[in-house]
Amino acid sequence: MYDLKEQEMMFVFTGPDGSGRKTVANLVAQSTLQMKGVISYTTRPKRSYEVEGRDYYFITDDEFRAAKEKGEFLENVRINGYQYGIKEMEIKKRFQEKGCIYLVMNTEGAEILKKLYGKKVVRIFLYADRQTLRERQVERGDASSVIAKHLAHYDEDMAYKKECEHAFENSKLDHTAYEVTQAVESYLK
Rank of each mutant, 00 (worst) to 15 (best):
L126V: 12
R123Q: 14
Q131K: 05
D142L: 05
Q137T: 10
V104A: 06
E90G: 13
V121C: 04
R140E: 02
V121H: 04
K115F: 06
E108K: 15
E88C: 02
A128H: 01
R130T: 13
R140N: 01
Y102F: 15
T132I: 03
Y102W: 12
C100P: 02
A128G: 03
T132K: 05
K149H: 09
G99A: 01
C100F: 05
H153N: 12
K93V: 08
Q131W: 01
Q96A: 01
E97V: 03
M105L: 11
G99H: 00
R123D: 13
E108L: 15
V146M: 11
A148L: 10
L151D: 02
D129R: 07
K92C: 12
G118K: 10
H153A: 12
E135R: 14
L151N: 02
C100Y: 03
D129V: 07
K114L: 09
E88H: 01
V138C: 06
L151S: 05
E156G: 07
S144L: 08
V122A: 06
L151W: 05
G118N: 09
R130W: 13
A152Y: 02
H153S: 13
T107M: 11
C100S: 06
R123W: 09
K98N: 14
E97S: 02
V138Q: 09
E108A: 15
A143F: 04
E90T: 12
M158H: 04
K149F: 07
D155G: 07
R94Y: 02
A152E: 11
Y154A: 08
R94G: 04
G118A: 07
G118V: 07
A152V: 02
H153Q: 14
G141S: 01
D129G: 12
M105N: 06
L133M: 13
A152I: 02
A152N: 10
A148P: 05
V146A: 13
Y117T: 03
D155K: 06
Q131I: 05
S145K: 08
A152M: 04
I112G: 09
L113G: 12
R136V: 08
Y154G: 11
K120R: 14
Q131Y: 02
G109Q: 11
Y117P: 03
R134H: 08
A148R: 10
V122N: 09
R140L: 00
K115Y: 05
